[in-house]
Amino acid sequence: MSHRERFALVWVVALVVVLGTYMVLVAALPGYDGFGVSTKIALLGGTLGILALAAIATQIAAHSAADRPESLALDERDRLIAGRAAAAAYHVLIAGMIIVGIVMPFNKGGWEIINAALLAIAAAEIVHHGLIFAAYRRGVRA
């Protein structure tokens, strides 16, 4: 398994676990709506902090396990896979941003919009890295 494949897998798992936990907490925590702004910011900041640490740790582990330094450079297959995954993720992200930025402001506000935006970004990231992992696993045709 190449380090890019490994990073994509670990990053998708980290996103699902960490942001999934945050979203479940937001949706199910009794009295979340009554929390103060600082509490909500702390909860969100903690979640993003854990994700940042997971990303850094995963990158370091993936790079140290790379079998040759030159394999860290992108070749034509890596660029093809990255380009296709980014194109698909773009559509997910743009759909999410239309909902968050154009539809939701008419009937929602504040933290609901923030959390929906976070969900849209997470969905795009999961699609992006999920497709990268799948392409390395199953192969890709030009």
């Binding site: 030159e70 394999s71 070749d75 034509e76 297959r77 390395y136 192969g139 890709v140």
Partner: peptide
């Protein structure tokens, strides 16, 4: 000028090179 993984993918028919 490609990675070992790409050569392995070409050999296995999982990637069509340029």
């Amino acid at each position: 000028g490609v990675t070992r993984q790409t050569i392995a993918a070409i050999e296995a028919g999982k990637y069509s090179p340029t």
